[in-house]
Computed example of a mutant assay.
Amino acid sequence: MKAVVLVGGFGTRLRPLTETVKKELLPLVDRPILDHVLDHLARHGVHEVILSSPYLEAAFHPFIEARQGDPAITWITEAAPLGTGGAIVNALGAVGNDPFFALNGDILTDLDLTGMLASHREHEAVVTISLHHVDDARAFGLVATDERGRVVEFLEKPLDPIPGDVNAGTYILDPAVLRPWRADSEISIEREIFPSVIASGGPVFGFLADAYWLDLGTPEKYLQAHFDLLDGKVHGVAYEAPWIAPTAVVDPEARIGRWVAVGAEARAASGAQVDDSVVHPGASVGDGARVLRTIVGPGAHVGAGSSVQDCVLGAGARIPDALSLSGQRISTDTEAHPA
């Protein structure tokens, strides 16, 4: 089984973290987000992954070189951004003639891919779309299905907070249904390809599962993914909580809360208090500093006696001693100043 993983997003909502690191390569506890995605695929029998992106391979080369074991990685660089549909069509030459998975590279899920493939085959579908039930669908477009689970239409985002089934961003696709499309312009698989297949009578089915699913596209969701992993909510992955890298240096007098991940070579000095936060590799928290619901980017420093709450610090950002910040984003290699 093969999979196409889309890694072309710009990660604008995660800035300043993505000013220096691609979104899919940001650390998620002990390894990059993309490692979690590939490990999940491997657990369900995927042996080859095609990574598709308009970025040059150089941005991902260190990750690809360091990756060990299944699945093997094939890289495709898009000549121009092709959208979700165009990128998948562009990869058809590498997937062969059998159905394949397609998904975004910034989703954390424990979706039963084996069960999804069985459902795809049972329904003789050309497309199967993973669905997730939400209590408030305003942030998503709704997917309407009949009593057999066949998708009948895609609905726009509702104005009112209503429950419904939404597209969870993992697909099984029959290559034949995509071959009429050309990969020479930007195409949306959700807004163009899927509606076209449905209109032509192609069997498109939903796979509704009670699985963990989280889009990691914002700082709040990125933090929540760490909390959920540390809390054991994602099947197949287990961590101690808090998680402290073996090479991190945490003073015995520092207080590290349960929902905290401290990366390699990071430091927390005496009296430091860190709660509900992520401290990236090489970052440091000074004497008596307070860090709450904050992402401390790689090599960033929180000065002694400072307090940062609901903040995002880019790589190499510096918080001077005895400064209090709330709700701010500090850019790469920038020193914060009083508001």
Rank of each mutant, 00 (worst) to 15 (best):
R31C: 05
R121Y: 06
D98G: 04
A139T: 09
T128G: 04
W181K: 04
L325P: 05
R191Q: 06
S52W: 00
S185V: 10
Q309P: 04
H280S: 14
Y171P: 15
D276Y: 09
R67H: 15
G299Q: 10
R67C: 06
P242R: 13
A336R: 00
L323D: 02
A245N: 15
V250M: 06
S53M: 00
G286T: 03
D310Y: 03
G286L: 05
I64D: 15
A272W: 10
L28C: 04
E122K: 14
A42K: 07
R179A: 13
L38Q: 12
T18Y: 00
E65T: 14
V279M: 06
E186H: 00
R267E: 01
L178K: 03
L155V: 11
G169A: 11
G327T: 04
A261H: 05
T332E: 02
E65M: 10
I50Q: 02
V4Y: 14
N167P: 12
V279D: 00
L14I: 14
Q224K: 15
R329F: 04
V302P: 01
A3L: 06
R15N: 11
L51G: 05
A322M: 09
V291A: 03
G271C: 04
D110S: 02
V95Q: 12
I330D: 01
L26A: 09
G303P: 01
L214S: 12
A125W: 08
H132Y: 08
D321Y: 05
L56I: 06
I73W: 13
T74V: 15
P203Y: 09
P281W: 00
V151N: 08
W75H: 09
G45R: 13
A268K: 03
V302C: 02
D35K: 11
A139F: 13
L323W: 00
D35T: 15
D210A: 07
L159P: 03
A304H: 11
N97H: 08
G282Q: 03
A87I: 06
V7Y: 04
R267A: 00
P195F: 03
T114A: 14
R67F: 09
F194W: 12
W181C: 05
L34E: 07
V249N: 02
A118V: 14
